[in-house]
Amino acid sequence: SEHYTFDGEEQAIRFMRDMEAKNLKYELQIHNGKYIIQVD
């Protein structure tokens, strides 16, 4: 699995939509205002 970190919500949402379009599962965590997305 890989981790991707985003500072902004818009970037994170765009990335998650992209993952959904590719049928990839992901998990979102928010730490200290950063959006951390783990992709299986």
Results as ranks from 00 to 15, higher is better:
1 S>H: 14
1 S>A: 11
1 S>M: 12
1 S>Y: 13
1 S>I: 13
2 E>H: 15
2 E>G: 13
2 E>Y: 14
2 E>K: 13
3 H>G: 07
3 H>W: 15
3 H>Q: 13
3 H>V: 15
4 Y>S: 01
5 T>N: 04
5 T>K: 04
5 T>V: 14
5 T>G: 03
6 F>I: 03
6 F>P: 01
6 F>L: 03
7 D>R: 03
7 D>S: 08
7 D>I: 06
8 G>M: 13
8 G>I: 14
8 G>L: 14
8 G>K: 13
9 E>H: 09
9 E>T: 05
9 E>R: 08
9 E>I: 14
10 E>D: 10
11 Q>K: 06
11 Q>P: 07
12 A>W: 04
12 A>S: 02
12 A>F: 06
12 A>R: 01
13 I>S: 07
13 I>G: 05
13 I>N: 11
13 I>W: 06
14 R>A: 12
14 R>W: 04
14 R>L: 09
14 R>G: 08
15 F>E: 02
15 F>K: 04
15 F>W: 04
15 F>N: 02
15 F>H: 04
16 M>Q: 03
16 M>A: 06
17 R>G: 06
17 R>H: 10
17 R>Q: 13
18 D>C: 15
18 D>S: 09
19 M>F: 04
19 M>C: 15
19 M>P: 00
19 M>R: 01
19 M>H: 03
19 M>V: 06
20 E>R: 05
20 E>H: 06
20 E>F: 06
20 E>M: 08
20 E>L: 07
20 E>S: 06
21 A>E: 11
21 A>K: 11
21 A>L: 11
21 A>W: 06
21 A>T: 08
21 A>C: 07
22 K>Y: 05
22 K>W: 05
22 K>P: 02
22 K>I: 07
22 K>E: 06
22 K>D: 04
23 N>Q: 08
23 N>S: 08
23 N>H: 10
24 L>Q: 09
25 K>T: 10
25 K>Y: 10
26 Y>I: 08
26 Y>G: 04
26 Y>S: 05
26 Y>H: 03
26 Y>T: 09
27 E>C: 14
27 E>I: 14
27 E>H: 13
27 E>A: 09
28 L>Y: 08
29 Q>Y: 13
29 Q>V: 14
29 Q>H: 13
30 I>E: 05
30 I>W: 05
30 I>F: 10
30 I>T: 04
30 I>G: 01
30 I>M: 09
31 H>Y: 10
31 H>D: 10
31 H>C: 15
32 N>Q: 08
32 N>C: 12
32 N>R: 05
33 G>F: 02
33 G>K: 03
33 G>R: 02
34 K>F: 09
34 K>M: 10
34 K>N: 05
34 K>D: 02
34 K>L: 10
34 K>T: 07
35 Y>M: 03
35 Y>W: 13
35 Y>G: 00
35 Y>E: 00
35 Y>K: 00
36 I>A: 02
36 I>F: 10
36 I>S: 05
37 I>K: 00
37 I>A: 03
37 I>R: 00
37 I>T: 00
37 I>N: 00
37 I>V: 13
38 Q>C: 15
38 Q>L: 15
39 V>Y: 04
39 V>E: 01
39 V>K: 02
39 V>G: 02
39 V>S: 03
40 D>Q: 14
40 D>I: 15
40 D>L: 15
40 D>W: 15
40 D>S: 13
